[in-house]
């Protein structure tokens, strides 16, 4: 089904999506409607335009592709499924996501992948084509974040405070040098060979946006991991 979202309120648009029986849905002329595909499962939703905040919140298996930029809190607490953004994404992208994958062609804002966590077979992943803002992977507890740092025009690949409070998961940065000023909870190392799951994530990103994989796979990467899975263990005394 095709839905023309021009001048539609988000509640009406989302009710139309929810109540539609078709698996394939195309939303055209999207102009900032929030919560599209919230909690959705087993759908394929294409969005043309700019969806509003909390696109794909609690997403539960649906695949979403956006031709345009997305705003804040995309994929909040997403459980499984995929969100592909042919544009850039705002702040708190992938907040607390537990599974599924978010592919962003351009940049992401602050706090991307904050409190992302993995659980058994659920291993969430975010691949960012451009640069990431400050607080990337803050409190990260699991999953994989890859920053490809494309078209960054001499600017740093990540902002400040990357991985503050990180206690699980991993971050891959496509760059030559270990970024300065990483917090104490983070250990940085050069990657000699990209693991297979990361290669396939990068492959998926290239496939989604029609980019050649060679330049991204045959590059140098820095890997960030937490120093300890129990960062606060020694902080307390019984009273």
């Amino acid at each position: 089904m095709r839905i023309d979202a021009t001048n539609m309120h988000f509640a009406d648009l989302n009710a139309a999506v929810r109540n539609d029986s078709e698996e394939e849905i195309v939303i055209e002329n999207c102009i900032g409607q929030r919560y599209i595909a919230a909690g959705s499962s087993e759908r394929h939703i294409s969005v043309i335009g700019t969806p509003g905040n909390a696109l794909g919140a609690y997403l539960n298996g649906t695949s979403v592709r956006v031709e345009g930029n997305v705003q804040e809190a995309t994929g909040d607490t997403m459980n499984c499924g995929s969100i592909v953004v042919n544009g850039s994404a705002g702040d708190a992208t992938g907040y607390a996501m537990r599974g599924g994958v978010i592919l962003v062609r351009g940049d992401v804002g602050y706090r991307c992948g904050i409190h992302m966590k993995a659980y058994r077979e659920n291993k969430p992943a975010i691949v960012i084509g451009g640069r990431a803002g400050s607080f990337l992977g803050e409190y990260q507890a699991g999953g994989t974040i890859v920053v490809l740092g494309d078209r960054r025009g001499g600017k740093p690949i990540i902002g400040n405070f990357c991985g503050t409070g990180m206690h699980g998961g991993e971050i891959y940065l496509r760059c030559e040098e270990i970024p300065p000023l990483l917090p104490a909870q983070v250990r940085a190392e050069r990657v000699s060979e990209l693991p297979e799951d990361v290669r396939s994530l990068i492959g998926a990103w290239c496939g989604a946006f029609g980019e050649g994989a060679a330049a991204y796979l045959n590059a140098s990467y820095i890997r960030l991991v937490p120093n300890s899975a129990n960062p606060y263990k020694q902080m307390y005394t019984d009273n």
Partner: peptide
């Protein structure tokens, strides 16, 4: 909790997507 065994479960002090009543509304 849907988190790995043996790893600390940390709830940050703020919701990092809530800085205002408008954000709470979201």
């Amino acid at each position: 909790r849907m988190i790995p065994q043996g790893v600390d479960a940390i709830s940050p002090a703020p919701h990092h997507d809530i800085y205002s009543i408008e954000d709470l509304r979201q």
